[in-house]
């Protein structure tokens, strides 16, 4: 069958994104779910590549995996005490059931939205989309989206200071 190499890789990446999610959701050990999360992020950046969003994929890699996931691990290591890690992570059956119901409900609604929208297949229009998006993104960022760019920087600054203050103050 003429399934091309590209589609197989796409499948792989998609699987790499979706499968660890189960671990994130159900694993007993918080560390395992952290690692699972690492693979999901990796899968996502792969998907970005497929979308020709190379800058985005890299940003995903650096910030999500490099930043967020590391912080996450820090948090886990600082807050877990080795012996009862297992219990803390146990997922209460009753709560899981409830979550399942809500998720199924959400799934139903969104599925309905998909179907109601007629689900037109639309393929990627080749050509109009620049291969290297960084320059364009940079230009775009600093021209039309200058205000969000500045706001984001202020936000980051605030977050930086805020987290220091919270971390210190709570000691007293």
């Amino acid at each position: 069958m003429n399934v091309e190499m590209k589609e197989i890789v796409f499948f792989g990446v998609a699987a790499m994104t979706m499968v660890p999610c189960f671990f994130v959701a159900f694993s007993r050990n918080i560390l395992h779910s952290a690692f699972a999360l690492f693979f999901t992020f990796l899968g996502a950046s792969g998907l970005y590549f497929f979308l020709d969003a190379d800058f985005l994929a890299l940003v995903q890699l650096i910030i999500y995996i490099g930043g967020v996931l590391v912080l996450l691990l820090f948090a886990i290591l600082l807050t877990k005490n080795i012996d009862n890690i297992r219990s803390t992570n146990a997922v209460a059956a009753k709560r899981a059931a409830a979550a399942g119901v809500v998720t199924a409900a959400m799934f139903g609604v969104i599925l309905y939205a998909f179907l109601a929208s007629g689900w037109p297949f639309r393929h990627s229009g080749a050509g109009q989309y620049p291969a290297v998006t960084t320059k364009a993104l940079g230009k775009l960022l600093l021209t039309t989206y200058l205000l969000p760019f500045e706001a984001i920087s202020i936000l980051l600054l605030a977050v930086l200071i805020g987290s220091l203050v919270i971390a210190n103050r709570s000691v007293k």
Binding site: A98, A99, V102, A105, M106, G108, V109, A113
Partner: peptide
Amino acid sequence: VMVLLFLVVLGVS
């Protein structure tokens, strides 16, 4: 969160 989502579902439906 659960209640929130539940209401979203309810609203949309």
